[in-house]
Design a protein around this nucleic acid. Structure first.
Lengths: 117, 117
DNA sequence: CAGGATCCTTACCAAAAGGTGAGTACCTGA
DNA sequence: TCAGGTACTCACCTTTTGGTAAGGATCCTG
């Protein structure tokens, strides 16, 4: 449901990172450039279709850079743009908050908490 | 689409603040406790039904405190819990990021940028 | 009585997000 | 030919989120 007008910066940012998979993909790319298959294996539970769909959206939002290498088998590499890097930095406090309150959040929603790391 | 298991803190946090209205409501409550009608007027575009629905979810997540005053006309006040206050703090950098990149985000999505403030 | 204030719930529907399965392309090796 | 590798697209469907409209409750005032 697209707002006609953003109310504030946070409203816009949530639009960019919202959905089930984007934050996880952003985080996976934090470690460095990755290929489609690597991302697929790294982000548990995502289908190839959803992965590619979401990566295309993130590319359109200019937080992810997609680089095609003309070789066989096909090789496409995704990496964070500088905008994406700054976004990831801005997400750190939120990730910390989630980590601190993981067990309570998970319990209330009937979800397994994340393994510790 | 509820994940079976959270992958990390950020995954859990996004689950708590995701959707069209939660971030805006969180922000509105940042200024202090508010009644239903005040919130309705403050969050542009939200219907009464959605407002109440989302407030109930946030209450269940324990980021919002709902206090019923037994008077007429009915008076119900919503305020941030300490958990909610910490969440709002964690959202500040993300809001800043969104503010800095507002025009580009809005342009790409065909949305009006937020008025400056 | 009607209308006002406040807050909330229900029925039903629309829109968006996400998912499965099948197919496509390139190539190599058995 | 088949199987394997890589990355991607389309058709169709399911699930989730959000929306409209109508109704309900309390009391007070004209």
């Amino acid at each position: 449901m697209k707002p006609r007008s953003y109310a504030c910066g946070l409203d816009a940012a949530i639009d960019v990172i919202g959905g089930r998979w984007k934050a996880l993909i952003l985080w996976a790319l934090h470690h460095g450039p990755m290929r489609t298959g690597e991302l697929r294996r790294s982000v548990s539970g995502i289908s190839e279709k959803m992965l590619i769909q979401v990566l295309r959206e993130m590319e359109a939002d200019e937080i992810v850079h997609r680089e095609v290498f003309h070789e066989v088998p096909p090789r496409v590499e995704y990496s964070l743009t500088s905008l994406g890097v700054r976004l990831n930095e801005a997400l750190l406090p939120l990730g910390d908050w989630g980590e601190e309150n993981m067990r309570a959040i998970a319990r209330r929603r009937g979800v397994e908490p994340a393994p510790r790391h």
